[in-house]
């Protein structure tokens, strides 16, 4: 029991550290990647290749003046970024980072917790995340912040439906399980869900862009119209938390996409590789190699997110709503219908 608790505690710490680290370096890579796409160099002064830039930025954030507007609701104003950050971190709990491994005759899962409604939990926590934006934007008592918050929440509500329906179709293909661990294990056979659900993936990806408030759906902070959107009034580390949590969200949604549609820690010819290396089932090395493969996929997805951001202009608000309600929801329903029919005939 004690070993179990210690293992979980250590795993928690490691995973939070990794997601925070990845988020920090995403900010660096975002700027680097953007500058590569724009024929520039990007941050290159702090450390080699500007690698210390995230530290410098974080330090700067801490030392900036902390301003809480007089007319704001102080409690909610502080609660907003906290909630956003906490929910962003909470999502990493159900993600299976690698295969289970055996040590000293015990089975250890490379996942903080494998609840049997993992997918539901994920969607639930993600939708709590929008409260962070909503509360922060509302508590600022600033029209731009409020507009940003309203946009964020209506955008989330609209795109969550399409996302949910796309996920239902995915759950049907993976045999009705809501546990992320099982969804990933199902793809062990070598065929990832993307093959069965290309349309579903596209819908999920677009919705993930919208849910994480990334361009072309960054209407919530839309600096060209709304000053800074929902975080207009925020300063110092509270602003830092908002910006940082967005990158954690991006990391987690990349992880979820890789797990749902691209086999998570599985990769082609994995078993051949393990046999060739003489690794037995349950070895920790298998878990670690799987984690490496998973991580590569996540990084590729993060790059995709950035690539989209630095290519596409922002949607107009009515276009956003049209796309969500008139295109994505019908499309995801069609996808669901086809999946159901196909699954019914194949399973008979």
């Amino acid at each position: 029991m004690l070993a179990f608790v210690i293992y979980k505690a250590v795993l928690c710490v490691i995973i939070f550290a990794i997601s925070l680290g990845v988020a920090a370096y995403s900010t660096w890579w975002e700027r680097k990647f953007a500058s590569f796409l724009q024929d520039r160099v990007g941050p290159n002064r702090a450390g080699p290749f500007g690698l210390l830039q995230p530290l410098a930025d974080g330090g700067k954030m801490f030392f900036k003046e902390e301003i809480i507007p007089n007319v704001s609701n102080k409690f909610l104003f502080i609660l907003g970024p906290c909630l956003f950050m906490v929910t962003a971190c909470m999502t990493s709990v159900v993600i299976p980072w690698g295969k289970d491994f055996m040590m000293g005759g015990r089975n250890f899962a490379f996942q903080i917790t494998d609840i049997n409604i993992g997918v539901l939990y994920l969607l639930g926590v993600v939708s709590i995340g929008v409260y962070g934006i909503m509360i922060g934007g509302w508590a600022s008592n600033n029209k731009f912040a409020l507009l940003g918050a309203i946009r964020a929440s209506s955008q989330m509500i609209s795109y969550e439906i399409a996302m949910g329906i796309a996920v239902i179709a995915l759950i049907i293909t993976s045999g009705g399980t809501l546990s992320l661990h099982e969804i990933v294990e199902k793809q062990d056979a070598g065929v990832c869900n993307f093959v069965y659900q290309p349309l579903g993936f596209l819908i999920f990806f677009i919705c993930a862009l919208a849910e994480t408030n990334r361009a072309p759906f960054d209407l919530a902070e839309c600096e060209s119209e709304l000053v800074g959107g929902y975080h207009t009034e925020y300063s110092s580390m509270k602003l830092g938390l908002y910006l940082f949590a967005e990158y954690i969200n991006m990391f987690i949604s990349s992880a979820v996409m890789a797990a749902f549609y691209f086999g998570g820690y599985n990769f082609p010819f994995a078993h051949e590789l393990y046999n060739a290396m003489g690794l037995q089932e349950g070895s920790i090395w298998i878990s670690l190699i799987g984690f490496g493969a998973y991580f590569t996929k996540i990084v590729l997805f993060i790059c995709l997110f950035m690539w989209v951001r630095w290519t596409l202009p922002r949607f107009r608000y009515d276009q956003l709503m049209n796309l969500g309600w008139k295109v994505l929801i019908p499309l995801s329903l069609v996808n669901l219908a086809i999946t159901t029919v196909v699954a019914y005939y194949f399973n008979k």
Partner: peptide, 20 residues
């Protein structure tokens, strides 16, 4: 979207114009 993304991708391999 794909057209735009291929344009930005092509810039990934171009020399940067920056003078350090």
């Amino acid at each position: 979207v794909f057209k735009g993304m291929s344009i930005t991708l092509s810039h990934l391999f171009k020399k940067s114009a920056t003078i350090r």
